[in-house]
Structures are given as C-alpha cells and as structure tokens.
C-alpha cells in the first residue's frame, strides 16, 4: 500500500469515528438513552477521576486512581444501565423534569488504530467536550473537558469499550451528575 493509500484510509477512518461520536452526542441530546446504552460494549469501563491541586513535580498524584480511589464515576454497563432506568422511571426528581442538554464534541483525534486504518478493529480516540445543561427555569451548567475513548468493532459496529472523562474542575461546580459525558 502506498503512503497515499494509507492517508486515504486514515481520512475515511477519521470521518467514521467523528460520525460515531456525533451520533452518540445526538442520542444523548435527544434523550434516546437506551439507544445510547447500545453503543456501549458489555464490558465497558466508564471512569471520571477527581482532580487534586498538587505541587509541581507531583503531577502523578493529580488524578484519583481508577479501581482504587473514590472517583466521580468508576463503573460498568450495569450501573450505567441503572442510571438510564432511573431517569426513565419518570420519578427521578433530579432529572424530572428532564434537563435540556447539548453535547458539543470537538478536537477529535485518533491516537491509535489496530491493526490498521484500512481494516480497523480498535481505535483510541481523544476528544474535547463542552456540555451545556439547562434545567428547570434558570439552572445552567457548563462542563468542559476531555475524553479518552477506546472503541472497538463488534458486528460491523463501533462500540465504546472504555471511556475516561477528564473534567477540568477540582471542586465540582455542578450539583449533580445525572447526565452522561
């Protein structure tokens, strides 16, 4: 394969992955939660560490550790499913009435692809998000950060196998995390 052919494969892959992430955002914004859950691998890990203010030179301690520490989220599909089910009861007062939400996804970069761009089965992708959440009358939250995802192909479809959400906050500036990143 020529370099040019490789570039084309990467271009197609970039477009496919972006489309996937935009479609995911669409499902969440349109409150199509069950369809969103279907985009998650059965073994998905969904992790949002907390962040500490640490001294220069000690940045390895900035984030709480997956699987060891208290995090904002550190869970799999079962708990995520429960979250969706809770919203769909119609009596989860933190999400009733439902919030209005908009996920802006940007800076989508494919960091790694296995085995190749022309026949990908696993992709590591980083993106930035700006989530605007408006609730009841005047509650407005804006959350900004990064996501590091591992997607893999299952039955000709991309699924999220792993998501690490890096929120750029220390003390959380929002009263709850009833929505998905």
């Amino acid at each position: 394969m020529t370099d040019h052919g490789d570039d084309v494969a990467h271009l197609f892959l970039q477009q496919k992955i972006e489309s996937f992430l935009y479609w995911e955002a669409e499902l969440l914004d349109e409150r199509r939660y069950e369809e969103w859950l279907a985009l998650l691998d059965e073994d998905v890990r969904y992790w949002m560490p907390m962040r500490r203010n640490v001294k220069f030179g000690e940045l390895e301690r900035e984030f709480t550790r997956e699987g060891q520490d208290v995090n904002w989220f550190d869970e799999g599909k079962e708990t995520l499913t429960r979250r969706v089910q809770q919203i769909l009861t119609g009596v989860h007062w933190a999400e009733e009435p439902l919030s209005r939400i908009c996920h802006i996804v940007s800076n989508i970069q494919i960091l790694d692809v296995k085995p190749s761009a022309s026949a990908p089965s696993e992709v590591t992708v980083k993106s930035r998000f700006l989530i605007y959440r408006n609730r009841v009358e005047t509650e407005t939250d804006i959350l900004v950060g990064k996501r590091e995802d591992v997607l893999h192909r299952v039955d000709e479809q991309w699924k999220i196998r792993r998501r690490k959400i890096v929120l750029d906050q220390n003390v959380l500036q929002v009263k709850n995390l009833t929505f998905f990143f």
Partner: peptide, 11 residues
C-alpha cells in the same frame, strides 16, 4: 478513609 474526598457545590 478511601483515597479521594468528594467536594461539590449545592445551591
């Protein structure tokens, strides 16, 4: 205590 203290604002 487990590592990590949750801190958040409520109105």
């Amino acid at each position: 205590v487990l590592g990590g203290v949750q801190k958040w604002l409520i109105p």
